[in-house]
Simulated scan of single mutants.
Amino acid sequence: MKTRDRILLCALELFNEQGEPNVTTLDMANELDISPGNLYYHFKGKEALLEVLIDDFLLSTRSLLSPADDPDEVSPEDLWLLLHLLFEAIATYRFLFQDLSNLMSRYPFIRHAMQAWLHQLRQCLAHILLMMRAAEHLHCNDEGMQRLLDAVCQTCLFWLDYQRIVAVEQPDPAAGVQQVLGLLLPYLDEETEEWMQALIDRYS
């Protein structure tokens, strides 16, 4: 593995384990057993590392939130798959979500990137939920739809931060999916509700 890639992987692991504010470039150099100058040759500081890592996160979710094809129909299974892959990506870059408000206040480029990402997430989820409503899987008026979207987006953004606060050492992405699916249950038709409840039980 190239030194640049090793540095990025090390930074991601240390940020995830210790939190970004608690990790320095010297910590990374020591962990990798390279000189600080070698690290500086590839990245001129922690901010440069963060810029690459957030770009990597955005790239990992781009195809999920902006698919090349726009299907005429969306099933509950499509929503489940989206959430499953989304929470896996969130868990991989969990340092972003365990301290998101702090990171956004300290790094303007993270604030701008995550605000744009949230807008994209909300548009994607709104499209899926509207298609489910059109197929009569989901029963919800426009006002209720906005509240549901808010709740789902808030769960995606802050679920890991909540897990950190309640001292869950190894958050399971499946638990995040389970939480979001649970929000949808009261709005589903009987058949879809039974299917989704069985899916939630399988995650438990």
Rank of each mutant, 00 (worst) to 15 (best):
K2D: 12
T3N: 09
R4A: 11
D5G: 01
R6K: 14
A11C: 12
L12R: 14
L12G: 05
E13R: 13
L14V: 00
G19I: 09
P21R: 03
V23H: 06
T24I: 03
D27T: 02
M28K: 03
A29F: 12
E31N: 12
I34L: 07
S35Y: 02
S35M: 05
G37W: 07
N38H: 04
N38D: 02
Y41M: 05
F43P: 01
K44T: 10
K46E: 04
K46R: 14
L49K: 00
L50A: 01
L50S: 09
L50I: 06
V52Q: 14
V52A: 01
L53E: 07
L53D: 04
D55N: 10
L58G: 13
L59Q: 15
S60G: 08
S60F: 03
R62A: 13
S63F: 13
L64V: 11
L65M: 13
L65S: 02
D72M: 04
E73S: 07
E73H: 10
V74I: 15
S75A: 08
D78V: 07
L79R: 01
L82H: 05
L82G: 06
H84I: 05
H84D: 15
L85A: 10
E88S: 03
E88C: 01
E88M: 05
A89T: 01
A91P: 00
Y93M: 05
R94D: 06
Q98I: 06
L100M: 12
S101N: 11
S101D: 11
N102K: 09
N102H: 10
L103Y: 04
S105A: 11
S105D: 09
R106I: 02
Y107A: 02
Y107D: 04
P108Q: 06
F109S: 08
F109W: 08
F109T: 08
I110M: 04
H112I: 11
A113D: 12
M114Q: 13
A116Q: 14
L118G: 01
L118E: 14
L118C: 09
L125E: 02
L125R: 03
A126W: 09
H127T: 09
I128S: 08
L129H: 02
L130F: 08
M132Y: 06
R133Q: 14
E136R: 15
H137F: 15
L138T: 04
L138H: 04
C140L: 15
C140Y: 02
C140P: 05
N141L: 08
D142H: 10
G144V: 11
G144E: 15
G144C: 07
Q146P: 00
R147I: 09
D150C: 07
D150F: 13
C153G: 01
Q154P: 00
C156L: 15
L160I: 02
R164P: 01
I165Y: 10
I165G: 00
V166C: 06
A167E: 12
E169N: 07
Q170A: 08
D172K: 11
D172E: 12
G176R: 07
Q178C: 06
L181K: 02
L184G: 01
L184S: 04
L185D: 07
P186H: 15
Y187M: 03
Y187E: 06
L188Q: 00
L188S: 00
D189R: 07
E190C: 03
E191C: 06
E194R: 14
E194Q: 13
M196T: 13
L199I: 06
I200P: 00
D201Y: 08
D201N: 09
D201S: 09
S204C: 08
